[in-house]
Each structure stands twice: as C-alpha cells, then as structure tokens.
C-alpha cells in the first residue's frame, strides 16, 4: 500500500517499489531462503538413523516457533485493542493470527509428512500433535469469529478475547513432550532444550533457518497489516455510502 499511496505523479511502479521497505524485506527473505536451501541440502550432515528425512526438521522447527510468535503478537495486540480500542491494534492482531495459522498449518503438515516414514503412521493422538491441532483450531475459530460476528465491533472484541485465551495453549504445546508421555522428539530449542541436543553444525543451520523464516514471517505480517489497512479504508468510504 505504501508503495502506491506514496507514489508521486511522475513515479513509476518500479521506483515506488524500491522505496518500500517491504520490497527490500522480500528481497532479503528470498536471498536468505536460497542460502538456507543450500545449507539444508548440501552442508547439513545426513542423520545416521533417520536419513535425509531428518532435514525436514530445519523447516518444521522454525515454522513451529514462528507460529508461536504470531500467536504471541496476536495476544499482545488483542490486549492492546481491548484497552485502547485502536484500529491499528486490531489490524496487527488479525494479521498475526492469520499468518500464525498459515505457519501452524505448515508445521502440522510437515510433521505429518515426517511422521509417516519415521513412525509408520501419518497421525497419532500423542500430546504434541494433539495440543498443536487444538492450537490450530483455536486460531481458525479466531478468524471465523471475525467473519461471522453480528457486527464488526463485536467480532473485533470477541476475537481479541479468543486470541488472548488461546495463547495459553502455546506453552502447553511446548511443554507437552515433558508433561505427558510422548513419542515426539524433545525440544531442541528454547528454555528446556539440552545443551548437546544438536551437533554444533546442525544447531548453526537451525539458527540460520530460524532467521530466514523470521524474515519471511515479518514480510507476510507487514504485507497483511498493509492489506487490512487498505481494506479498512475502502470499507470506511463505502460505509459512508453517499457524499456531498
């Protein structure tokens, strides 16, 4: 939006894109993703037990962590909205929930693809998978509430409450492998991860993958917030209906 809204009368679309920080974030994301692909497929050692399938871990873990970040942003912005009732808080909360749902969906899908050759089943009702599925359902409900609430105002307030309460499931997902008997691998990152959970080279590549995924997450979040801003502007003019 900024690229077009900030465009002067003689600006070309390319020139205005070059001034948009989101464009450069996208370029950085693409570069980091290409380097990350090289690290994952060429540099990372092949796991002696699991084989090549273990490389899924380099996208599965960062995607899962960034879905948590999305829901944290959603919860914080939801609190901000309930206190201040500002449109910007709601925009950020909505955008973060949607991007978070995309990330957690992919975390579930990559987990399922990993589970089939390693566990022999696509899905099992073990604690980590079950709590993650509950997390997915909570934030899909968040998006549905916004859509189906009687008024937009109610949709914003109700979804903010769901976004805040729903975040309680995030630490449950993280600690589920310790609290209950689970066949899911234990944490390799975060407060409960063991120091020697990973080979040093694997840990470094995982951190790089996390940075690349964070760049992508930031780009998608900023793009979604901008889109919501433009949609709100159109709705505001249309709500007016007539003008003098």
């Amino acid at each position: 939006m900024a690229a077009i809204a900030g465009r002067g009368p003689t600006d070309s679309p390319i020139r205005s894109s070059l001034r948009d920080p989101r464009f450069w974030l996208l370029v950085a994301t693409a570069a980091l993703t290409i380097i990350d692909g090289y690290l994952i497929f060429v540099v990372a050692p092949t796991d002696q037990v699991l084989g090549h399938i273990q490389r899924i871990f380099y996208i599965h873990v960062p995607i899962s962590i960034l879905s948590f970040l999305g829901f944290l942003v959603c919860a914080v912005a939801g609190i901000g909205y309930l206190i201040r009732r500002g449109e910007v808080w709601d925009r950020v909360a909505h955008a973060a929930a949607e991007v978070g749902v995309v990330f957690v969906t992919l975390a579930l899908v990559t987990g399922v693809i990993w589970a089939r050759p390693v566990w022999g089943v696509w899905w099992t009702w073990e604690p980590r998978l079950t709590t993650t599925l509950i997390l997915w359902l909570i934030y899909v409900a968040y998006l549905m509430i916004r859509h189906y609430a009687p008024t937009a105002q109610q949709g914003r307030a109700w979804s903010a409450v769901v976004g805040i309460i729903g975040f309680v499931d995030v630490p449950i997902v993280y600690y589920s492998v310790q609290w209950w008997r689970s066949i899911h691998p234990v944490q390799v990152i975060g407060p409960e991860a063991a120091d020697d959970a990973l080979e040093p080279i694997m840990a470094r590549i995982l951190v790089f993958s996390l940075v690349a995924a964070l760049a992508l997450f930031s780009y998608l979040l900023l793009e979604r917030v901008a889109l919501r801003g433009a949609e709100d502007a159109v709705s505001a003019i249309r709500r007016q209906g007539t003008y003098d």
Partner: peptide, 30 residues
C-alpha cells in the same frame, strides 16, 4: 539410513508452494 527422498521433497514443496501462493494472493488482493 533410508533416504525417504519423496517425503523430503513433498515437505519442502508444500511449504514453499503455500508461502508463495499466500504472498502472491496478498499482493494481488492489495
């Protein structure tokens, strides 16, 4: 160790395809 390359390919293909489609959809919609 087993190679399981089709599963590895499927996982990365799905992730990159979904992110690309989502970003393209947002750009088109904006």
């Amino acid at each position: 160790p087993p190679s399981n390359l089709p599963y590895l390919f499927a996982a990365f293909a799905v992730v990159w395809a979904v992110f690309f489609i989502y970003a393209a959809y947002m750009s088109w919609r904006r």
